[in-house]
């Protein structure tokens, strides 16, 4: 396995691969290019391969965070900056909570034999299939009238934790099963309590699983629109909500919107490049054995 050899392929094969790559990332590239153009360039009739790249759209979107005042702006609109802060807080907090209670639950489901384990497994699998659209009405009603959580970040975080938990439990189970039980028994012999065994022995061993689970969780919280739209008010809006709100029927400011879209797309793209193996593991777990 150390020295890999590669087969020679026929040139048409490489042409196909290049075409596939262009198709896969072409739209993303187009968005990047558009976000670097002035609206004059976007709207001009000549297809413009040559243009002056400018960061102006990003300055407009992020004006709240800049230490200088961009001269093309008369007034700074803080909507997007606020949404970015909200998205970051909601994404990070909900991921942290989901992972902590998710790993504990997955561990209990795998390691301890107690009544109702199968039932719980089936339920987690079923809950995994619940689409956000189905939760829209009840969550709106309950959060508004019973919990009083509408319009707060906490309310949105609670939905995202619940939405992600089944998947996290499901995926972590497959990693915990692989931890040799002898290791845990040895630790218990040395006098470690169940919590110590879990935090000091099991957790470090399932780091790849935790990485995969946290990427998936963060991605859902970061990208979700529908529930955030129903639950947030002016101060707790997330980035996807502001993007949809700024899409009007006519006269769309494509440059700025593409810049915000790009900012929303950047974290998932970074994750993909750093952890594609874990992501693919997460995707294939369950469907493909081994």
């Amino acid at each position: 396995m150390s020295q890999k050899t590669y087969d020679r392929q026929n040139p048409a094969f490489y042409v196909l691969i290049v075409m596939l790559v262009i198709m896969a990332i072409g739209p993303i590239y187009l968005m990047l290019v558009t976000s670097l153009k002035l609206n004059v360039d976007i709207m001009s009739d000549t297809s413009s391969l040559i243009f002056m790249p400018t960061l102006r759209n990003y300055e407009t979107a992020l004006c709240d965070f800049l230490w200088y005042e961009p001269e093309h702006l008369r007034r700074c609109d803080p909507t997007f900056g606020r949404a970015l802060t909200n998205s970051l807080i909601i994404g990070l907090v909900s991921t942290a909570i989901t992972l902590i209670i998710g790993t504990m639950a997955a561990y209990a489901l795998v390691r301890f034999r107690f009544m109702g384990r199968d039932v719980v497994s089936i339920w987690t699998l079923m809950m995994r299939m619940v689409p956000p659209a189905v939760l829209l009405v009840p969550v709106f009603g309950i959060w508004t009238f019973q919990f009083g959580l509408d319009g707060t970040r906490g309310g949105i975080i609670l939905v995202y934790v619940a939405l992600n938990l089944p998947f996290v439990i499901w995926i972590l189970q497959s990693f915990i099963v692989q931890v040799p039980i002898q290791l845990e028994e040895a630790a218990r012999m040395d006098g470690a309590g169940p919590f110590q065994v879990f935090f000091l022995v099991v957790l470090p061993l399932i780091k790849p699983g935790i990485a995969a689970a946290s990427i998936f969780t963060f991605r859902v919280a970061w990208n979700e629109f529908l529930l955030a739209n129903a639950l947030s008010d002016r101060n707790s809006r997330t980035v996807p909500v502001t993007i949809v709100n700024s899409l009007t029927e006519f006269d769309i400011d494509w440059g700025v919107i593409m810049a915000t879209g790009m900012l929303l797309a950047v974290p998932p793209i970074i994750f993909t490049f750093f952890a594609s193996r874990q992501i693919i593991t997460g995707m294939t777990a369950g469907a493909v054995k081994g």
Partner: peptide, 20 residues
């Protein structure tokens, strides 16, 4: 190649809609 192919699934559906 696989990394590039999973990009469309990872970015926000909102952004995908926007691009298209």
């Amino acid at each position: 190649l696989r990394t590039l192919f999973i990009l469309p699934m990872m970015i926000a559906p909102i952004v995908v809609g926007l691009m298209w």
